[in-house]
Design a binder for these strands. Structure first.
Lengths: 208, 208
DNA sequence: CAGTCAAACTGAACTGAACTCAGGTTGCTA
DNA sequence: TAGCAACCTGAGTTCAGTTCAGTTTGACTG
């Protein structure tokens, strides 16, 4: 476990960093990043707007932190779920299932991640923002490599027909994360049902 | 053909609306919506910033127009490509192929659409923005219904195993449009290759 | 070919949300 | 109980998007 909790271990006892992140996840996830006022988060936490700058360099820095934390968490989960699974098909199934084993807060974080992916492309002007951005980008590439490796291993073992593993990995990832664009806990299809359908799709996409 | 050209038929001969849309697609697509200054588009077109407001109520109104136009165009293409195709599998293949039969400018528009989908969720305060937003949302729902119908028909004909057609349609759509998040014409994998891979994935997802 | 009018445009001023500044307060540690 | 780092604040700044109050352009009419 690399560790991706909202509460950093090395922060003071009266720090509101965790509370700010929690409030930001709520607002950014429900209302959207552009649509939520930075000051609304301050109000929710019960501090003045300017106090936010004690913890984050900017609104974007906060967003990037949320995205990086979620990437870290989901990657850790992937690694743990697939580590000692020898059978490629079972490894793939485990990877998909763990991607959908999320709390309501984590659903919001995935949504935030998907809706603001574009932020990871261009470089940031401020120091700490750029650091978070690079870390997040790095994690995205790691995740892509993880999935690609899972596929190449399956192909070399003969479990999957040989195809462009990297592009196929991007396709699998695209399919899985696209769910967070439309899925709502209040919706008509429960998550386990979605999960099972997507799991089947992923397996069929790769095998045969 | 419903018609989704950049140049509206009922606009004056010295109108710069088309030029503004073209410039906006370039900037929003390459640099991102938030990252491009509204005034940069004015400069590109060769007018003052305030002249933009003669054509669009706001920067967001321009963006929503671009998104609506692209939705309209791609839906028209889908309808035309699948209209008189009886075989469900062939209809599916045709739908996927036409989704990837796009110009470079249309690739940018698809990217813009994907990166700003979140805008279609919340209501807009200004009149014309809200009109465009509703039109775009309506089109999204039509597209989802088109794909769902394609699947239900295939299922009732026994060409596809019976599954939750709507969720499966969302999955197919998610898979296809996710390509525009990472695909670059300058990248290593050419679009026809991507198209063939995705086409195969879609067919395998749905059949068997 | 002068007059008219709507379309097209402009510079200056306004707005609001993100952010900076110049300090003030709190409570843990020694 | 003194020091000091973490934590916080109100007042002010910035800047992109937007509004305002007109001015220019050119197609069409009489």
């Amino acid at each position: 476990m690399t560790g991706a909790r909202l509460v950093d271990p090395d922060e003071g006892p009266r720090s509101k960093r965790g509370a700010i992140l929690a409030a930001a996840i709520e607002y950014f996830g429900e209302t959207g990043y552009e649509n939520t006022k930075w000051s609304a988060i301050a109000q929710q936490v019960g501090i003045g707007q300017t106090a936010l700058y004690h913890y984050f360099e900017s609104k974007a820095h906060c967003l990037l932190t949320i995205m990086r934390l979620e990437l870290q968490r989901s990657r850790d989960q992937f690694v743990e779920a697939t580590r000692d699974e020898k059978d490629p098909v079972e490894a793939l199934r485990a990877a998909v299932r763990v991607a959908f084993a999320v709390s309501e807060h984590e659903i919001l974080q995935m949504r935030i991640l998907q809706n603001n992916m574009v932020l990871l492309a261009g470089t940031r002007t401020s120091q700490r923002e750029e650091t978070e951005r690079r870390a997040a980008r790095e994690l995205v590439q790691l995740v892509e490599r993880d999935w690609t490796r899972l596929l190449t291993q399956g192909m070399s073992q003969g479990a999957f027909p040989v195809r462009d593993a990297h592009t196929l990995a991007l396709a699998l990832l695209g399919l899985i994360v696209s769910v967070w664009r439309w899925y709502r806990p209040s919706g008509s299809t429960p998550l386990p049902e979605v999960r099972d359908l997507i799991e089947g799709c992923c397996v069929r996409m790769v095998t045969e």
